[in-house]
Amino acid sequence: MASQGTKRSYEQMETDGERQNATEIRASVGKMIGGIGRFYIQMCTELKLSDYEGRLIQNSLTIERMVLSAFDERRNKYLEEHPSAGKDPKKTGGPIYRRVNGKWMRELILYDKEEIRRIWRQANNGDDATAGLTHMMIWHSNLNDATYQRTRALVRTGMDPRMCSLMQGSTLPRRSGAAGAAVKGVGTMVMELVRMIKRGINDRNFWRGENGRKTRIAYERMCNILKGKFQTAAQKAMMDQVRESRNPGNAEFEDLTFLARSALILRGSVAHKSCLPACVYGPAVASGYDFEREGYSLVGIDPFRLLQNSQVYSLIRPNENPAHKSQLVWMACHSAAFEDLRVLSFIKGTKVLPRGKLSTRGVQIASNENMETMESSTLELRSRYWAIRTRSGGNTNQQRASAGQISIQPTFSVQRNLPFDRTTIMAAFNGNTEGRTSDMRTEIIRMMESARPEDVSFQGRGVFELSDEKAASPIVPSFDMSNEGSYFFGDNAEEYDN
């Protein structure tokens, strides 16, 4: 783990906690998980779902989305002020799938948001429990990260689609708070800032007046979040320049895209947490497990152990491969979309394939898809080993990566060399080191050039047997250095459309 220093740990961010010791953190995270579980059980009762239907990941996603929508204050306010045809701002819903006479049927349900809020609060001892809501947002974000390569979004903001390893959390809503900021990748933060800068260039009043003052505060806050992700002084200094700019424009845009590229080699610290679907927490609570009393951590053995003992089902389209669908969801559960496939294969105990080789589309089923041909199958979400999630980018030494994705962002704290394609990355730096950030740029390029592919990161860190909950005997895996390590390699994943 990167030293926490003055930073709060993510469990504290996750639970809005002030400084807590490890036991208190485990208890408050457990409380959050228990609340999600209780809410899910109650919703299944309301909807009269069978046990099997309640364990269907598509039903879980609909129920999670309903509660997130019920608590989305800004959108609710907007919907009330701008009524649109056929949208009731006070209601929320989605597809629920039921097994009827041996076939899967889709039923569109509609609930009062007020009623959903009441059920959620009741499951969370009367609190709004925003930490639990954020947790579900991060699960949705991790699922998107594993399912889609955001080529269009990258290109629109002047970045290269091969930089997708920097895009963790790119679909997280803005209201996801400190826990959300911690899991956002460098590219995601750059993209958010670039969008602001572009608006400022096109709209003279963007930075002016009372609204402009708020915009400015948001801009500086985002700059500080991004600065905190960088691990070298030169990158941090460049972020200070971007933040202090009187009138952010093209120079800042250039600096930010430069920094994003540099992060492929001088990786930023991005938190990883295993956020599971509500249909995993519900049955665990129903079986009598007391998360608050037992304590829970999002970055240790607990999620692995929970998945070892969970039964989750998914709808499967006619030509999809259930094992591939399982891999997709497994990666999402562990926030591992940008991790090295060699490491993932070792931990999972079966070969993890790149996205383009998977015969599976996303987990969600569109409303126009034919239910007649839908089957369902068990998702295999178990693992051979477990490993500690990392909050750091690993040290800054790398190795060759593949054509589709030119770097990785480690999820697990496991000893290995970190793949990246130096030639491709360095070719993108057209040696432009003039301007006010020239000395920093020169320094950053120097550090990137001296990074050695064969150097090892996370020295001495290994994986653990599932029986080793105290992480007492690390097993340090050895990897084939020459092997392909990137998930979005030469990829044809669908595009994420909101």
Score class of each variant (00 low, 15 high):
36 I>S: 08
474 P>G: 12
42 Q>G: 07
188 T>A: 13
483 N>T: 12
487 Y>N: 08
466 L>R: 06
289 Y>A: 11
98 R>Y: 03
266 L>S: 06
261 R>L: 10
460 G>N: 02
319 N>D: 15
218 A>T: 14
26 R>W: 02
328 L>Y: 04
67 V>C: 07
331 M>V: 12
261 R>P: 12
395 N>V: 04
9 S>A: 15
341 L>K: 01
127 D>F: 12
449 E>H: 05
199 R>G: 13
387 A>T: 14
402 S>L: 15
63 I>P: 01
471 A>M: 05
41 I>N: 09
140 H>S: 07
112 D>K: 03
34 G>E: 11
367 S>W: 07
128 D>R: 03
248 P>I: 10
490 G>H: 05
269 S>I: 07
371 M>K: 13
474 P>F: 09
357 K>G: 04
13 M>W: 12
93 G>W: 09
405 Q>Y: 02
435 G>Q: 03
167 M>V: 10
476 V>W: 14
260 A>F: 01
467 S>H: 01
118 R>L: 13
387 A>F: 05
137 M>T: 11
299 V>Q: 11
195 R>I: 11
19 R>F: 10
341 L>Q: 13
16 D>R: 00
457 S>G: 08
104 W>V: 02
278 A>E: 01
106 R>Y: 03
216 R>G: 10
1 M>N: 12
208 R>T: 06
114 E>T: 12
378 T>K: 13
463 V>M: 13
133 L>H: 02
322 P>I: 01
399 Q>Y: 00
195 R>L: 02
121 R>V: 14
116 I>N: 01
291 F>V: 12
390 T>R: 02
208 R>A: 00
484 E>V: 13
411 T>L: 02
30 G>N: 03
410 P>A: 13
212 G>Q: 03
465 E>P: 01
306 L>E: 05
96 I>V: 13
5 G>H: 07
238 M>T: 08
411 T>D: 09
434 E>K: 08
335 S>R: 00
219 Y>S: 11
94 G>Q: 04
451 A>N: 03
188 T>D: 07
114 E>Q: 13
126 G>S: 10
65 R>D: 08
391 R>G: 08
416 R>W: 04
217 I>S: 09
354 P>L: 04
274 S>E: 06
345 S>Q: 02
270 V>W: 03
